[in-house]
Amino acid sequence: MTPVALGLIGIVLALPAPALLARAHWPLLSPAAGILMWQALALAAILAMSGAGLATALWFVTDDDPGTWQVVGHVAVLGVGVMVWARFWWAAWKVWRETAQRRARHRQLVDLLGQPHGALPAVRIMAAQTPVAYCIPRRGDSRVVVSQGTLDALDEVSLQAVLEHERAHVRTRHDLVLEAFGVLHRAFPRILRTDAPLRQSQVLVELMADDAARRVTGGPALARAIVALAGSRTPSGALGSGGAALARLERIGDPHRSTWWATTLALGISAVVLIVPTVALAVPWMMHALEVLGG
């Protein structure tokens, strides 16, 4: 029963649960807790499916007279568990390599074509007239890129809000958060995954960066910057200021809204999906496994 139960938990956490939560607005009220919740869901799904595979392997070793349908079912569960675990490590390598290569190439182009900002050495100004702003993260030597169109469209305080937003991305390594979601996303086969965690994480890191910028420049200046940059495209591997404009403006427009309950709910869901399957199924199975292997 344990392999089937863990397998079902993994499927629920990989598909219907994220699809349902993606329709909710409340995770946007507490971005950091929301990020943790989405990571917990994806990680718990991988752990559940991996546990299902291990439980199935033990069943094959200990069951003396398995039925045909039992064998078929357990082989399917074992196959999914092995596939998810193998894809996780393959995805970790592939996401890291592809992202590093894209950022290195784009950083070279930015340094070649961009004009250094006199007072801000890490900032590069591109000649494009379309308002654009983004950062290219790199430990110890990141770049913040703004177009001439951005400089022309924004007043001094709004430009400062944009720069603070991008520095927050760099300082708190939001790129690593998104890379982790990319790995967890690719770990599941297409029929067993939804794009919701990846899309939601992209919105949540923008809200977190907005919080940092708002503390420096205030809400009105940040709102003007968001409107000016709304819809601007960000190169692959970079983090930009043009996405999720509506959600960001709504949050700025209601700065005093209570968020403690959203934080509590997100943290509670994170704890439940990680702890309950472990305590209810994994620990008893591990005790049984030790007894069988020890006996």
Score class of each variant (00 low, 15 high):
W285A: 11
G34P: 12
A221S: 13
T234R: 06
P197C: 05
V123Y: 02
V162D: 09
G295C: 09
I275S: 14
L6Y: 02
D210Q: 08
D254V: 05
L151I: 14
V84Q: 09
A44V: 06
M286A: 14
I9H: 04
M1V: 11
R167W: 14
L281K: 07
A282Y: 01
L163A: 07
G295I: 07
W261K: 11
A76M: 14
H74S: 09
T172L: 12
D111E: 15
W69F: 12
A100S: 11
M286T: 07
P27K: 06
V276D: 08
L204P: 02
T2N: 13
A223D: 12
W93R: 14
S50G: 15
A86G: 11
V276P: 13
I191C: 03
T217H: 05
S236H: 06
Q39F: 13
A22Y: 06
W93L: 13
A223F: 01
R124K: 08
P27D: 10
A168Y: 05
D141M: 05
P31R: 08
I252G: 04
A42R: 13
A262C: 05
A119R: 15
L267W: 15
A17Q: 01
H174P: 04
L222H: 10
L78H: 03
F188M: 15
L36P: 00
D64R: 15
L178G: 07
M37C: 14
A225Y: 06
A52T: 00
A17D: 00
S147L: 01
R105Y: 02
I191D: 02
G240Q: 07
M37F: 09
S241M: 12
R103L: 10
A52C: 13
L192N: 05
V203G: 09
A196S: 12
T278I: 10
L29T: 03
W90Q: 12
M126Q: 11
L239V: 00
H165K: 08
S270E: 08
D175K: 04
L163P: 06
L43G: 07
V145E: 00
P137Q: 04
M287H: 02
A48W: 06
T99M: 09
P284H: 11
H169V: 03
D65K: 13
A32Q: 12
H185Y: 14
A42P: 01
L192T: 00
V84L: 08
G34Q: 09
W261V: 09
G81W: 02
D254P: 01
A33N: 06
W261G: 08
G253M: 04
S258C: 08
E156R: 15
A45K: 02
R143L: 13
R248Y: 04
L43M: 08
Y134D: 03
T263H: 12
A42C: 13
A245D: 02
W260H: 13
H169T: 10
I46E: 04
A266L: 07
A128Y: 00
V272T: 13
A271T: 11
L13C: 03
C135Y: 00
M83D: 11
H256Y: 10
A92L: 09
G242I: 02
P277I: 03
Q108M: 14
V227N: 11
L43K: 09
A161Q: 06
T234I: 00
V157L: 14
W85H: 06
R139F: 07
G10N: 07
L15M: 11
S241T: 12
L265E: 03
T217Q: 08
L28S: 14
L290Y: 04
A19Y: 03
A213M: 03
P131W: 01
G219P: 01
S50D: 04
F60S: 02
G79F: 11
P189C: 00
L192A: 12
R233P: 02
